[in-house]
Design a protein around this nucleic acid. Structure first.
Lengths: 183, 183
DNA sequence: ACTAACATGTAACCCGTTACATGATTAT
DNA sequence: ATAATCATGTAACGGGTTACATGTTAGT
């Protein structure tokens, strides 16, 4: 049940509406944990039910009203406790790897294309990560404790992204030695 | 619906029983795609229903009989087609990253412990990967096409594992500068 | 008039996990 | 006897995805 905890983590800094959370989950925390707005609204209901979140309606002009959630004391306690729960590693499940097991002359061009697209995607993401790092995390040793944790998450994203690029290059290189065969 | 395709991929080389598949999913393909025996048995039923797999009972002596599955022509075709389906990237969801966002003096020791455990786990896995690489994939350019794909999956695992170790070291280093505070 | 952004939800379905269930054979 | 390995399944639950559903305001 980590989505709930991810939401509460996001609410530690600011009170947010479901809509704003969904936007956040497309960036920042969302780099490491994705969630759709549907999922977020359902989870917000559950968390409110447990009294881990409080809600209040905020009247806006020029926009529809929104329901803003904040983390309660009980929520903070539950979150702090959760950090100590044991988690077992979950290997990433990636279709691309299964597809690679099916590599053949008929699909080598397609797979090279998929890898190229992933490479492009990762380049863009890395550009963003690096921008954030330079702007906010230039000197990690000097950051306040909590921000050090956020920096480490970012650093993992950067490391993994860079290595993924290197792998893409190796893969494309090897694939280019295979004779492609049209359909 | 990639588990089904992962199963069919495993059956391309050999006909296997559910039990044998479950064992395979603890190694080889299972490095990149995990599945429990419960899930596999259910998926086998579905795939049989679609006539993508055929089954036959094999009588054994000294052991309970087993039901062995093989991929049909229709299954091969569906699998070959699936390779061309577009997949969107799914970011790995890792509790540890959410926990890191909650880094504080009260949990720094615990989180350092979790990272150390992950590092250990990854070291063991890398040892295995390297053994397989040396034994079966020493000269990737010379492999037959399909095996080149398997090699690339292995190479990704190795690259990512190595970079993860590096990240663990960086993380433990940074965490060691934070004053821990007992509960 | 139309599109994009803002804003919130429900329902159905699929996939994965956990728990439950059974039973044979081999080795200690 | 008991544990380990071989072998196959069902049922309940929880989480995530897709589809459906509604409505406002601002800009072109």
């Amino acid at each position: 049940m980590a989505l709930g905890h991810a939401i509460m983590t996001a609410l530690l800094e600011d009170d947010l509406s479901g809509y704003e959370l969904a936007k956040d989950f497309e960036t920042s925390l969302g780099f490491f944990w994705q969630a759709s707005h549907q999922q977020i609204y359902q989870e917000l209901r559950k968390l409110s039910g447990k009294h881990w979140l409080s809600k209040r309606e905020v009247t806006q002009r020029g926009k529809p009203n929104k329901i803003v959630y904040g983390i309660t004391k009980a929520g903070r306690e539950a979150l702090a406790q959760w950090v100590f729960s044991t988690t077992r590693t979950q290997t990433a499940k990636d279709d691309l790897l299964v597809k690679l097991y099916n590599l053949g002359p008929g699909n080598v061009a397609h797979l090279a294309g998929e890898i190229t697209a992933r490479r492009e995607e990762m380049m863009q993401r890395l550009y963003l990560y690096e921008k954030i790092r330079r702007r906010h995390y230039a000197a990690p040793e000097l950051l306040p404790t909590r921000r050090k944790g956020v920096y480490l998450a970012l650093a993992l994203g950067i490391h993994q992204g860079e290595q993924f690029l290197a792998w893409c290059d190796e893969a494309l290189d090897l694939l280019s030695t295979i004779e492609s065969q049209g359909l």
